[in-house]
């Protein structure tokens, strides 16, 4: 059954006769054409990366960060309506702080995602609000190791070894599936993340972009979510560009044959 014209898609928190909530589905549409975000779960931590589409030459390079922290040990990358992403992160921070004030320990990642999941789900239940227009990839480490989740506008979330969202998600997912996750190191994860974002950008080639990578790992960052150091970033970009060129050459070879 189609959505448009039936009247069942004009308000949030309305079921259509065949049991769909169209406004939630439309919210997902806001995500589909956005810049690509990926998350990789590794042996010893998590890597997050985003393809930040630059809409103007006047933007200050290296600022306007898109990856954010919820607590020292948890990071988030999201695609979609960016201000909604900030709203989501602010709520996550409140949850993390409230947990810590009650229990003293930092919140564990599964508990955090459970809480923000409830919050996001609540925005599908009333017609006075609209669902979040983002998919958020939440990664972190705690006493139980590394965790990676992605939450959707409906409030549903799944755990992943590797996940991608945004315009280049298909390309990115295909590449993620080739990796031996979660058995690679975060250092390798960083290089792969850069390569995958460069590949995924092929789907959005007419626009300039800036790469942003963060990681959180017990071994590399002492369990803190941080942007990767500049040297590592440069190395990852170099690796990504070399791989990119190789791929093009391979493509050309095929054509010749």
């Amino acid at each position: 059954m189609s959505s448009i014209g039936t009247g069942y898609d004009l308000s949030n928190a309305i079921f259509s006769p065949d049991g769909r909530n169209f406004q939630v589905e439309y919210a997902s549409k806001a995500v589909e054409n956005a810049g690509t975000s990926i998350g990789i779960k590794c042996r010893d931590g998590v890597v997050l990366a985003v393809e930040k589409i630059q809409t103007s030459k006047l933007l200050v390079a290296g600022r306007n960060k898109r990856i954010q922290s919820i607590d020292r040990h948890i990071g988030v990358a999201y695609s979609g309506i960016i201000p909604d992403g900030r709203h989501f992160v602010n709520r996550g921070r409140d949850e993390a702080q409230s947990f810590k004030s009650l229990y003293k320990d930092p919140i564990k990642v599964p508990n955090l995602i459970d809480r923000v999941g409830l919050y996001v789900q609540n925005y599908t239940c009333a017609n006075s609000v609209r669902p979040f227009g983002i998919n958020a990839i939440v990664g972190g480490v705690d006493d139980d190791g590394a965790h990676l989740y992605m939450i959707e506008p409906s409030g549903v979330y799944w755990g992943y070894c590797g996940t991608a969202i945004g315009k280049g998600r298909q390309t990115a997912k295909a590449e993620l599936e080739k990796l031996d996750l979660p058995n690679i190191s975060v250092k390798d994860g960083v290089k792969e993340a850069a390569r995958i974002i460069y590949l995924a950008h092929e789907d959005n080639k007419d626009k300039e972009f800036e790469l942003e990578i963060s990681w959180v790992s017990q071994s590399e960052t002492g369990g803190r979510h941080e942007f990767i150091p500049q040297e590592l970033f440069d190395a990852a970009v170099q690796y990504a560009q070399e791989e990119d060129d190789d791929e093009e050459e391979e493509d050309e070879d095929v054509e010749v044959q």
């Binding site: 960060k65 922290s69 020292r72 004030s101 963060s214």
Partner: peptide
Amino acid sequence: ERILDDLQVQDSYDM
């Protein structure tokens, strides 16, 4: 100690 810890977390949100 907790108040100051929260303060540090808030200060480092932007990384």
